[in-house]
Design a protein around this nucleic acid. Structure first.
Lengths: 233, 233, 233, 233
DNA sequence: TATGAATGAGGTTTCATTCAT
DNA sequence: AATGAATGAAACCTCATTCAT
């Protein structure tokens, strides 16, 4: 499952792999895994074809690296966004917002994960799926905290979390539909409102209103803070 | 955009294309569009390679036909399920159930649509997307009826409909996760409950309870009505 | 171990394979197995590259077919030459002459067998070796008959046969040395004389002289009769 | 025809080349010249890839060095074995035994020479062939001495010498056949007996019997004297 | 209308060789 | 003198498409 390399310096391997991964994400997102040629990736990464095979065993390794990176972004962004947020409901909303914005800033990458995970051999596909579950767990924890704090009703956590995740992914998957009518943040707030309505307790609603009020100011500075990145070449 | 054929008898063209479409859906679902060869499809359809090119211009035509058929199933099944159902809330639930069950019985086909729509050239991709919107409209109409009947709050219809659609697709897209914990119907009822909670008015809730009570018996005969089909070889 | 084909008509398969085999023998003899490209073989056989892969699984199959054909020539020529020859000593000499002349007329093919048998995977290499042993057996039988008829001493048949075989192969393997000093027939008669001297009994020598006398005339017509074949393009 | 180097110290060049030659013989014997990569040789010699190109112009140089070394072994071993042997017939037998044992102890190397001499460009191939002729001359001299001493009949020296050489090579080339039935020494003595029978005069036979008698004891110490070397990694 | 043999462009991968360090 | 990362030409093989039968 580990990727073959003929290069000995681990730091160099890390650097080159990151470079190749970015190129792979860009190419595969653009045209899909199969239509993309190794030459495409080499050109995008501005290296020779031969170099690729010194850091990677075969083309599928590039896909695996690309998908891992795409999923890893969530695992990096969500905890980062949660730092310093204490209130359970606040944490929940923050996590969902972070999740959705990662999607918003890397639509292609999310679509890539949906399109090409199946192009991996079983063992690796399982690793990617596990990563998705790990990410979900970040949100699930927030949900459970809200339930424990009696801000949420006693709902089915697993289904609710996937409902949220699918809602976030939908922004990317149906960008062709939504992006012409609104921006991510509008989409996010409308959806959040809809989904929360079904789960908030009375106490939850009250807490929500207070959080909304507090958010009035920080909303502006918060926006630029969000880290537009990911599927950039 | 129309598909090329060298055969003159339209009935024959229809029959052969249906045959090829079924084979294409099966093959593409199994291995993906690009890895599938024309030979694979020919063997699955039990015809010669040459024959395919008498009913189809190129490989992409097969994909287009396959995806059209997958989306058409919804357009056939939902209206069929709605026949004879009058109550707005009943119609809504019926539509959602039909939608979700189509997914349940053709997981591979749904996944195929997600994976390979992008493999079509722009013009055809747009046609597929339009079909998806047309299908959504079937559900949106029910939602609007419920709002008009004051059974639903004044919610954002577009987002709510997509939330439902994504919920249904999630069963197929995340089958690797859900299918080991429950069956479609359990998934459906739990999700429906969760989503309805956020939108039902007081009147809506009352109506819902009545419908639930009535459904106790019909649940059994309802089952055989659902049309297991699609991604069969 | 059997060779893959996608073509259904067995007669066609036979014809095409024969054609490819001839081309392969010519190419591999000329430049060796590895330096020869599939394109070389395709051009020599005057077919497309793709066609080759409809009759053959991979490049090694071509080598296998080529080596089999080279060895098969002995199995065809020796029995043909022996037809109608009754005297044991006469049969022995005839067999050796046939063997040596096959070598003489397909020097490249013999060298090919020495160079490239090891390029086959174990299983197939074993099949080629077995074919060599089968051919040796044709000569060994003659030797045993001579011993039984008390024309040969009670010698070590296995070593003697291989001595003869190596002597014949030597004409091909050391053509760069011998061919500038004599022709096959001279080489053959001198070597035969030398080798026979060590094994003939008194009776054997007498019989030999008689056969020599009889051969005086037929020697000329015999020569044109030899069947130049094999490594022709 | 001389091999390129960028290194100035001739002693170092000699040492490194010997090291590379041993590695090359080992690798090429094992897998053949073309399938062996420079990396294989570098690893076997425990040096870097770059170093090889400081002592060698290209891959073919390695093959040339390897083949030269293989042939040189004969030129070293035969004279060494002949030292102190005076009797012409004794010298002949000693030379043949030395030749055959070199084969026996480096089967792979002999096979290598047969397989890959043709992979050299013409000029170098000629040099290798000349080396073979030089070696043959060592045996030819013994044969001529035997004839002069009237121990051998007036035979065709050239053909007889090649018959012996081929017999010795056969042990290596047909090791798959002989090695399972006997050891080199058995093979050697049986073959020698067969070949001598055809060439010994009456005086030669008598002399042979005397030598045989004398050899009874020395046979044991003779064995450890033979120089197992060559195709070792 | 149906077949399937034939084509050849193009993709992935290997590896001899170079050259900056 | 020694290293090994980088290069890119070239090889094998696949497969969409054509076309004679």
């Amino acid at each position: 499952m580990n990727i073959k390399t003929t290069v000995e310096d681990p730091a160099l391997v890390g650097r080159r792999r990151a470079q190749l991964t970015q190129a792979a994400i860009a190419c595969f997102s653009e045209r899909g895994y199969h239509p993309t040629t190794i030459r495409d990736v080499a050109e995008r990464a501005d290296v020779s074809i031969g170099l690729i095979y010194q850091y990677v065993g075969d083309k599928e390794d590039l896909l695996f690296m690309a998908l891992q990176e795409v999923l890893d972004i969530y695992m990096r962004q969500i905890p980062m966004a949660l730092e310093g947020v204490a209130d359970p409901l606040g944490r929940f909303c923050t996590a969902v917002r972070a999740y959705c914005r990662v999607n918003g800033s890397s639509v292609d990458a999310t679509v890539l994960a949906y399109r090409e995970t199946k192009s991996l051999r079983a063992e690796r596909r399982a690793a990617i799926m596990q990563k998705e579950l790990d990410t979900n767990e970040l949100i699930a924890a927030c949900v459970r905290d809200c339930i424990a704090a009696q801000l949420f009703e006693e709902i089915d956590v697993d289904i609710f979390v996937y409902q949220i995740v699918m809602f976030c992914h939908a922004w990317a998957l149906k960008a062709w539909h939504f992006a012409k009518a609104m921006d991510v943040d509008t989409y996010l707030e409308r959806g959040l409102k809809l989904m929360l309505r079904g789960v908030l307790t009375g106490a939850g609603e009250k807490r929500m209103r207070r959080l909304e009020a507090e958010r009035v100011v920080p909303v502006a500075p918060a926006a630029p803070a969000r880290p537009r990145r990911v599927s950039r070449r």
